[in-house]
Design a protein around this nucleic acid. Sequence first.
DNA 1: CCCACATGAGACATAGATGTCTCATGTGGA
DNA 2: TCCACATGAGACATCTATGTCTCATGTGGG
Lengths: 192, 192
Amino acid sequence: MSHVGYGCLMAVDRDHVLRSAAALLTRKSTATMDEVAKAAGISRATLHRQFAGRDALVRALEALGIEECEAALDAARLDDGTAQEAVRRLVRELEKVAGLLAFLYTENQLFEGDGQHEGWARLDARMAALFRRGQQSGEFRIDLSPAWLTEALYGLMASAAWAVTEGRVAAKDFHHMIVELLLGGALRREEP
Amino acid sequence: MSHVGYGCLMAVDRDHVLRSAAALLTRKSTATMDEVAKAAGISRATLHRQFAGRDALVRALEALGIEECEAALDAARLDDGTAQEAVRRLVRELEKVAGLLAFLYTENQLFEGDGQHEGWARLDARMAALFRRGQQSGEFRIDLSPAWLTEALYGLMASAAWAVTEGRVAAKDFHHMIVELLLGGALRREEP
DNA sequence: CCCACATGAGACATAGATGTCTCATGTGGA
DNA sequence: TCCACATGAGACATCTATGTCTCATGTGGG
């Protein structure tokens, strides 16, 4: 028996590997298991010991992404203040997950079968609830469904993350670009 | 020599194959050459005779997408009327290309190297010019850069196309969802 | 009728990634 | 010191998609 140290050490390494893989796959979604291993500073053998295969790795990244999104939603306190303020906090919190989210967003294989992760439905429901709250309070227009606003938020996050890595837009504008477009749109507001 | 019939027939078949492949790959981006061939109703051998390989096929799809986008931009008459009207026409015209666009959008391999298709730059430039025109005429706000609005339009189109195929939103709302979110945002306008 | 040619079917080799295995090494703890 | 164990390196088999080839077939035009 190797006592308890085993599980502990593995957990730490596993997290490091996962984050390295996320960073790499965000940039190059077709990266090899070899490249993922090198990026994490470990050998391919060790990578396989921690994740049964590429599929398992992607699944773990999906779980990580969902976990971090849920943490972001918690931190954004979606039920506090106006819905608009909550959306602003939400985008602020989601910004750090945007890269991983963009990667998962393109891994459409995750959503093909019937066995997609239930976490996505939970996240969708929470975000849609926020938009619905904004509609009921009169802040948001009612002709754009909560489901669409949720999808649009994902899409804008992915687009922005991708545009930033491509150097088309500045990273510092991330929050402003998404929030202002999502909430306010491109048209100038008439001065009241 | 086989006279002229050769080129003519090939052109027709090629176009049909291309559109079948676009329809299939839009749904399942990892489809095999076998599946692509079956979807087009031809054999894999014939598919290989028309497109040197999967890479060539994707490149051809890219060219087709660019071509159709440019046709859409032409049909939308971006220089006529207000910028807002032009954007509405543009989304209307782009709707039929949205699926293909969404597929190409996720084929990030196309944009990795330095040899990306110049057509994208042309399209970006024309769309950015439209948004810039709207800014200069005072219709659009100036704190959202034309480059970002262009990226956002791509992203929203892809998100909407994907959400429609997933059944999350209704296809008939496509134009309204994108245009209203892009131009007006989620916030209710104050009554003047 | 005859021939050229595009096609479909399938065999075959190749490439690239993946998954599994063994073995030597180094390190931390008893 | 000694041992257990995780690791790295690499060999090896496998698998899947791909690319290439041959051959029989059918069809359309001369």
